[in-house]
């Protein structure tokens, strides 16, 4: 009993220290701007919960963030660092636009389904290219992913300014808005499309189940831990790696699709808005443990949404949310490092 309690205390000390250190660093950054840290923290931590609109903004950010983080937890389990998640999200958004632009008169329900499938396929394909580069050109998936991110951004920009430019004149602010009836059903006053969080939670449940209960999940984890040994035991190691990349790309692609049909209602150059990379932070902090993905994604989304008010109320930049998120991940990684 007593030793259990001691062990629990020991297990909690390091995360708590990491939390304190992250806030200390963020406080230093705040103090340097001369604003009251307490006031800033009130906005960053609780701002997202102050009005229903902000709460729904937070949910609409948390949904794609969770999708990306869930996808990344698959690639982490498979031993891959999929830094290309941002590009996969963009590729998904572009692919999702295709059916919406080709057949705008079709029934919306069918079009959403098509857009979802097309987005997932686009993201998966973009991710599989990384797998192919790794397999056939011996390029690390980290560099391949980063390169593919630039390629995807360029492609989105080209589509916005080229083939899909506005009818009036090409504009960096995006394509023409989609017809109103193709927007995912939205509670207008709140800017909340309830389907988005539902899809994200569904993905979380399915992936958690797949990774912990299925034979596929066990094989993926075995490949992630030791591809050579898994191969010796008869697991098709490269195939599993490719599948994890495709699964992560598909989820990121669906996140991109949601950005198009539920948030921006158009393709904009910055359609991914750094959500994929924020998802990497979430997955890193959660250690790809599915139980932690949801709370951390919600927390990070609320920091980002809460900090949007900082420029208006306190006259400082909203980037402080990024400082807090980054510091949390950094110190969590430090706290986890094994003592030698």
């Amino acid at each position: 009993m007593r030793t259990d309690r001691l062990k629990l205390a020991a297990n909690l000390t390091r995360p708590l220290l990491a939390l304190v250190a992250a806030f200390a660093l963020t406080t230093l950054a705040l103090l340097s701007t001369g604003v009251s840290p307490l006031e800033a923290y009130r906005l960053v931590l609780f701002g997202a919960f102050s009005t229903p609109v902000r709460l729904s903004d937070m949910i609409m950010l948390a949904a794609p963030l969770l999708l990306c983080a869930v996808g990344l937890s698959i690639t982490f389990a498979g031993g891959l660092y999929n830094l290309g998640v941002e590009g996969q999200m963009i590729a998904g958004a572009i692919a999702a636009m295709v059916p919406l632009r080709l057949w705008p008169d079709w029934p919306p329900l069918l079009l959403w389904l098509l857009a979802g499938l097309s987005g997932a396929a686009g993201g998966a394909l973009w991710a599989l290219l990384i797998g192919a580069l790794r397999r056939y050109a011996n390029v690390s998936e980290i560099f391949a992913g980063l390169g593919m991110n630039f390629l995807a951004s360029g492609l989105a920009l080209y589509m916005v300014l080229g083939p899909w430019r506005r009818q009036t004149s090409a504009s960096l602010s995006g394509t023409d808005l989609l017809p109103r009836d193709l927007w995912l059903p939205t509670i207008d006053r709140l800017r909340l499309a309830p389907a988005a969080p539902v899809i994200a939670l569904l993905a979380l449940a399915i992936v958690w189940w797949a990774l912990t209960k299925t034979r596929w999940g066990l094989e993926v984890r075995a490949v992630g831990l030791n591809p050579a040994a898994a191969g010796r035991l008869g697991v098709a190691a490269f195939r599993r790696m490719a599948e994890t990349l495709a699964a992560c790309g598909a989820l990121a692609g669906i996140a991109g699709m949601l950005q198009v049909v539920a948030v921006h209602h158009a393709l904009i150059p910055n359609i991914s808005s750094g959500i994929g990379l924020l998802g990497l932070l979430v997955a890193l902090l959660a250690r790809a443990d599915p139980r932690w993905l949801l709370p951390i994604a919600v927390a990070f989304a609320s920091f980002t949404v809460g900090s949007i008010q900082l420029p208006l109320t306190l006259g400082i930049d909203s980037a402080i949310a990024g400082v807090l998120q980054g510091a949390l991940v950094l110190f969590a990684l430090v706290a986890r490092a094994r003592v030698r």
Partner: peptide, 26 residues
């Protein structure tokens, strides 16, 4: 053995589960 024979972090039961070839679930 540990470099390319078996997976150090997994248990013997996990290894037998890996050898299962049928079924969706472990």
């Amino acid at each position: 053995r540990l470099h390319d024979g078996m997976i150090g972090a997994l248990s013997l039961a996990d290894h037998f589960a890996l050898l299962q070839r049928n079924g969706l679930l472990v």
